[in-house]
Amino acid sequence: MENNLEKLQYKFAKSRMKEIKAFYIMLTGCILLSPYLIFINLKVNPEFNWFWFPLLGFGISILGYAFYLFTGKNWEKKKIKQLMEKESRNSKLL
């Protein structure tokens, strides 16, 4: 049983690490793309600053994903613990 628990914890940690890595890749991409968009806007059409629209979209998506990743994932941990405890109790009864 302990080996299965360790495998489950490793699997959860690995998937969590992939999600955090994806967040940092997305954040880096937005940081690198933003100056490029500003440069294009100011070079082509300096009268209208349209670069604010994609920057606002980047910001909203990054904040939403950060909220989901760093605060919204707690319910999954609690549910996994609850299911593991239930399974442990059921195996003891048999």
Rank of each mutant, 00 (worst) to 15 (best):
G57F: 14
F67T: 08
R89E: 14
R89T: 12
C30V: 11
N4Y: 06
K79S: 04
P35F: 03
F70I: 14
S61H: 00
I38M: 10
N4L: 07
K7Y: 05
I25W: 03
E85R: 01
M17E: 13
F48K: 07
F23N: 11
N41I: 07
K73H: 12
G72K: 04
F39V: 07
E76Y: 09
E87I: 05
Q82P: 02
E47D: 11
F53H: 01
K21N: 08
K77T: 11
K77E: 09
R89C: 06
L42S: 05
A13P: 01
R16E: 15
T28M: 03
M84E: 12
I60A: 15
Q9Y: 09
Y10W: 12
M17L: 09
R89L: 13
L94W: 15
F70Y: 15
L93F: 08
Y68S: 08
K73L: 09
K7M: 06
K18R: 06
L94H: 15
I25L: 09
N45Q: 09
L42N: 10
F67M: 02
M17Y: 08
N90A: 11
L56A: 12
K78D: 11
I31H: 01
K79M: 05
N90T: 07
Y36W: 07
I20L: 04
R89K: 10
W50H: 00
I25Q: 02
I25H: 01
F58S: 01
A13M: 00
K73E: 14
N3V: 06
K18N: 09
E2C: 05
L42T: 05
M1F: 12
G59I: 14
L8M: 15
W52P: 00
S91G: 03
G29F: 05
G57K: 00
E19Y: 04
Q82S: 15
W52H: 10
T71Q: 03
F58K: 00
R89D: 14
S91H: 10
A13T: 04
N45Y: 13
N3W: 03
F70P: 03
L63H: 00
F48W: 13
C30P: 00
Q9D: 14
K18Y: 11
I20H: 00
R89W: 04
K7W: 06
K11V: 09
L69V: 14
L37S: 02
T71K: 03
L94D: 15
W75F: 13
I38C: 02
I62F: 07
K78N: 08
K77S: 04
K77D: 10
I40E: 11
E85G: 02
L93T: 14
M1E: 12
L32K: 02
